[in-house]
Amino acid sequence: MNAPARPRVIIAEDSVLLREGLGRLLAESGFEVTAAVGDGEQLLRAVAADPPDIVVADVRMPPTHSDEGLRAALVIRAQWPDVAVLVLSQYVEERYAADLLAGATRGVGYLLKDRVADVESFVEALYRVGSGGTALDPEVVSQIFARSRRGAPLAALTPREREVLTLMAEGRSNSGIAEALVVTDGAVEKHVSGIFGKLALPAGATDHRRVLAVLRYLEG
């Protein structure tokens, strides 16, 4: 019986120290690092030459250290939709999270670099993104919520529903939400249904309502 394939990852990070550290961390956590580059152009060339399963990219890279990594990630999302993307940022920048989720929302994540220090959570988030899920940094979600709670229809949500939506935005499953809030799966399902109703997200065969709810959350 063949061993399961290791998820293939390309790392894009201009800090040599962090780039090498990420490479070692991912290799030790069951990933195969196929390339490690230092700017957005190199990242796009590496993906074009040998598309990986996942890209891990810093938002700010040379030459301007503004949003080169994010722009490269958006190109990858458009041209290689099967490649999952997890972007890392030094600071909370809500617009970047919204930009990433504005198109296809399968296999995308946005985390602060500090989260890498929590190796278990970081690796879990990377596997989740690689499997087609989402991973949003709790701090990003918290700041977005602080800004958006003033607007409707989010204002119609109960405090518990807001907690559930916050955890949904982080990419947690119903079971994960239940564990975090110390409630039953059934209670979470009831809150999720309430959120869908208040955000006017009716059931539909082609709609991923969890993602749509998070997008509504990001839009405020």
Rank of each mutant, 00 (worst) to 15 (best):
L22F: 13
E20M: 12
V37P: 02
V75S: 12
L111M: 12
P62G: 12
V183H: 10
A187Y: 11
I144V: 15
E68H: 03
L136M: 14
P81D: 10
A213V: 05
T184E: 14
R216S: 05
A178R: 06
L43T: 01
D67H: 08
A104Q: 08
R71K: 13
L167I: 06
L201D: 12
A49D: 15
R6S: 15
F196L: 11
S142T: 08
V192H: 07
V192E: 11
A78M: 05
E120W: 02
D39R: 07
H208Q: 11
T184K: 07
A200N: 14
D207K: 09
L215Y: 05
D207L: 13
G103C: 07
A205G: 03
V92C: 07
A178F: 11
V211W: 11
S173Y: 10
D207E: 13
L199N: 05
D207H: 06
W80K: 05
V164F: 09
P4E: 13
R160D: 10
V129P: 08
I144H: 04
S29L: 07
M1R: 11
S66Q: 14
N2S: 15
L70Q: 10
E28T: 06
T34A: 13
K190I: 12
R160F: 08
T166Y: 04
S148H: 14
S89L: 06
V16S: 14
I54N: 02
V119N: 02
L154M: 09
V56G: 02
R209K: 09
A84C: 12
Q79H: 13
A117K: 14
V140E: 01
H191Q: 14
R162V: 02
